[in-house]
Amino acid sequence: MDEMGINRVLSEMRALQARSTLPAAAPAPVAGTEAPQRSGFVDAMRDAVRGVNDRQADAARAADDFQLGRGDLATTMLKMQESGVAFRAAVEVRNRAVAAYQDIMNMPL
């Protein structure tokens, strides 16, 4: 899928979200317990993207420290590999979400 196709799909997703009139469903609190925090797909994705960003920032700091002689090679390489794996996983999740969206949009009514 090319860049324009991805942008088109994302804009369609945003338009559908803007048109949605369904209220957010909150679970009923159980007597004697605190009300649970609301969480959803958007919150999970936001946390995942922040986690990937944090790993990339840690890897960049480790590389800078290594270049300045303050870090060791093994730690730097480990952080860089962790960052790369996290990024590839995030891209794969995005690709599958876009594919699922396309499957739903192509379903006959």
Rank of each mutant, 00 (worst) to 15 (best):
K79H: 06
E34C: 03
R19F: 07
V42Y: 06
A25N: 13
L22M: 10
V93W: 04
D58R: 15
V91R: 11
M77I: 12
M4R: 13
A44S: 13
D103Y: 12
L73C: 00
A24D: 14
V42C: 07
M105R: 15
D58Y: 13
G32I: 00
K79Q: 11
D58M: 15
E34R: 09
E82A: 10
D72E: 10
G51L: 07
Q56G: 10
K79I: 00
A62F: 14
A57N: 02
S39E: 02
D65S: 06
A90D: 06
G71K: 15
A60S: 09
T33I: 02
R19M: 13
M77H: 08
G5K: 09
P27H: 00
Q17I: 09
L109I: 04
G84Y: 02
S39G: 03
S83P: 08
R61P: 06
I104K: 15
A100W: 08
P29E: 00
A99P: 01
P108D: 15
L109R: 10
P29D: 00
M45L: 11
A100Q: 10
A15M: 07
R8K: 08
V93H: 07
N106I: 05
P36M: 03
A90R: 09
E12W: 12
N7G: 01
F41Q: 08
L68E: 11
A99Y: 04
G5T: 14
V49F: 06
P29K: 01
Q81F: 10
A59K: 04
A35G: 01
R70W: 06
D72T: 06
R61I: 13
L78P: 10
E34D: 09
D72R: 11
G84W: 01
G51I: 05
A74P: 01
R50I: 05
P108Q: 15
A15G: 01
Q81P: 05
A89I: 02
R61A: 15
T21Y: 04
I104P: 12
P23K: 14
L22K: 14
A25T: 15
A31I: 04
D72V: 07
D64M: 06
V91H: 04
Q102D: 01
